[in-house]
């Protein structure tokens, strides 16, 4: 019984960067209405670089672990690096995700892209 990489379970038990920021530059919520997974991402961005990031959410282990891992991956990155981030980067960092659960794993990335595009427009 091990389709969930230990990494996923570890992030699920001990989420990184969980919580909220005082004055985030990006504050975005994305959900999977079909399964009730929700992720809220907050980023503070200084001179085009992610200085800090937090997430909150509820849902399955894959979506929440992916959110936790994503926060680690994006801290210190530039906005243009984030804009170019591919699905594959997150999926392989998670150690691979079975295909029935890709939409769970990619939920936080969808949140990030939505946040970046809203900021771009604003």
């Amino acid at each position: 019984m091990a389709p969930y990489e230990e990494l996923i379970l570890e992030h699920w038990r001990n989420p990184r960067n969980k919580g909220s920021l005082e004055n985030p530059d990006i504050d975005v919520v994305e959900a999977n209405p079909l399964c009730g997974d929700v992720v809220r991402l907050q980023l503070s961005v200084k001179e085009g670089t992610v200085k800090d990031v937090r997430f909150e959410g509820q849902g399955c282990a894959i979506s929440q672990a992916a959110a936790s891992l994503l926060t680690e991956m994006i801290k210190g990155k530039t906005v243009s690096e984030l804009e170019e981030m591919k699905d594959e980067e997150l999926l392989s960092a998670l150690g691979g995700v079975i295909k029935t659960r890709l939409s769970c794993a990619l939920l936080p990335l969808r949140a990030l892209r939505k946040g970046l595009s809203e900021r771009g427009k604003g």
């Binding site: 019984m1 399955c60 659960r101």
Partner: peptide, 22 residues
């Protein structure tokens, strides 16, 4: 404390098909 989709995915690894959702 465990999301039903996680339960269904793990049981599937054992060949057990159950439904999870609303």
């Amino acid at each position: 404390g465990i999301h039903p989709h996680d339960v269904a995915t793990l049981l599937d690894q054992e060949g057990i098909a159950i439904r999870a959702g609303h």
